[in-house]
Design a protein around this nucleic acid. Sequence first.
DNA 1: TGTACATCAGTGAACGCGCGTTCACTGATGTAC
DNA 2: TGTACATCAGTGAACGCGCGTTCACTGATGTAC
Lengths: 195, 195
Amino acid sequence: MASRGYHHGDLRRALLECAEQAVSDGGPAQLSLRDVARRAGVSHAAPAHHFGDKRGLLTALAAEGFAQLARRLEEALAERGAFLDVAVAYVDFAVDRRAPFEVMFRPDMYDALDPTVVQARAEAAGSLALGLASMPEDAVGADRRVAELAAWSLVHGFATLWLGGALTTDGRDDPGDTARAVARYLFDKGVGPAR
Amino acid sequence: MASRGYHHGDLRRALLECAEQAVSDGGPAQLSLRDVARRAGVSHAAPAHHFGDKRGLLTALAAEGFAQLARRLEEALAERGAFLDVAVAYVDFAVDRRAPFEVMFRPDMYDALDPTVVQARAEAAGSLALGLASMPEDAVGADRRVAELAAWSLVHGFATLWLGGALTTDGRDDPGDTARAVARYLFDKGVGPAR
DNA sequence: TGTACATCAGTGAACGCGCGTTCACTGATGTAC
DNA sequence: TGTACATCAGTGAACGCGCGTTCACTGATGTAC
């Protein structure tokens, strides 16, 4: 636990945080173990010691990301109780936890079959579906599977476009607000101004 | 125009096609000029000769992609005339022109301000909006801008999730069919079975 | 029909760089006695 | 309280590799005369 000296204390944690920063700066593909080590002020061989190899580091990042997304969606559902809030939470996660989000949906870059990843991802998907289940029956329609897919596509697409800089922010600059208006659109057409 | 010999004929075209293949194989980030040259059976300095540098090649790829997307959306609108068809065309493009699609929405990798790119992108966006304009007034609702955003998010999200392998194809394996059901959901809830 | 010349598409050698991975090592820590 | 030892986190030198870019070049083509 000594923060200085030969032993770091919690280097694994620190490396993950630096990796996240690195992904934020240059995207998942630019990530390099040496850069992460540099950011953490540690020898370049240290990351390999903790994660085996580059793939291992990305796998850890993805697993953490899914776990946190699941937690956030659950919280939104528990606190607010409506699908709209879950949708907004999804977009919020993508925006302020951009790095893990981008890694998570690039399964070719990490071990997507890693048990930790698989479980965390299932939890996140479950929360989203649960959010949808809170909608009144007639708003969801006949095919619940299609509704789930549409809901996921909508929030995921909005988040992706936003992150990709494809959306011009004319006027409203808070993605959460815009996301709410868009998500509301899915189940309640003809809304007035957002919020 | 001689296809053999020192002069290639249309090496620029050939390089773009090889680049697309390379992106299909390994993603945009893996693209390397040397690999593209190798695929085209040409010296590794040749791509630089045509595109200046790596960024130039990706810019050309993106410009072509947006132009083709715009064309496809226009065609779908002209032939079928309904928003649903435009939505399906968007997803189809993403699926069978995966490589350019992935490049297009990673604007940090190329020169997004390139005039050719800007124009082609605007055309594509216009076609999508036009598709939406074909919907009856009461299906679109009060805020057309939000409707456009929702529509784009929906198709883009679906396409992205599909490409990312996030969607388990239980049963229906044609993305177009599923996309149609999902898109229909946006404006016409409570549909029965897809198609 | 033939010759000189300009143009430019494509070559290939060379450069320096950052990377992932390996491996023998060393320093710090905790535990057994 | 002190000593020996096992454990393991982190080091640093070394390797081989593929990359982007540069640059003087060469071969093919078209055009002027």
